[in-house]
């Protein structure tokens, strides 16, 4: 799992690469929560290089999004889900409660709407 970040207009684009599973989800959780503690509350998780997510990964993004919306009026939004990952979001119904975009630019711009 590799994580990088770029920030523009107060929106943090977090790029993750690799399996997002029970072994790696805590790394993503810790990374984003560290940024949250430093005052960042608008995130786009770029999933272009994530071929796989399991329920542990889903739990992490669900709870982060819930915390950001509930406590900070922020959000965790998603860009470029691979077909296998998109299918898991759909089966679990998370596509109904999380905001997912086809490209990272649109996801970032959605915070200024």
């Amino acid at each position: 799992m590799k994580i990088t970040e770029s920030v523009k207009d107060n929106v943090s684009q977090v790029y993750i690469k690799g399996r997002f599973d029970a072994h790696t989800c805590e790394t993503v959780d810790a990374y984003i929560r560290e940024k949250m503690e430093k005052g960042r509350h608008q995130f786009v998780l770029n999933m272009e290089k994530v071929p796989f997510i399991d329920s542990a990964g889903l739990r992490v993004v669900l709870v982060i999004a819930r915390d950001l919306r509930g406590e900070y009026q922020g959000d965790l939004r998603f860009a470029i889900l691979q077909p296998a990952v998109n299918k898991v979001f759909e089966i679990s119904g998370l596509n109904n409660v999380l905001r997912i975009f086809d490209d990272a630019e649109t996801a970032a711009q959605s915070f200024s709407e």
């Binding site: 542990a56 739990r59 669900l62 999004a65 919306r69 679990s92």
Partner: peptide, 17 residues
Amino acid sequence: LEASLEDRPVRGLGLYL
């Protein structure tokens, strides 16, 4: 699976999948 984000349970998803 119809619950709002706030009420969405975080357990039980793995076996459901």
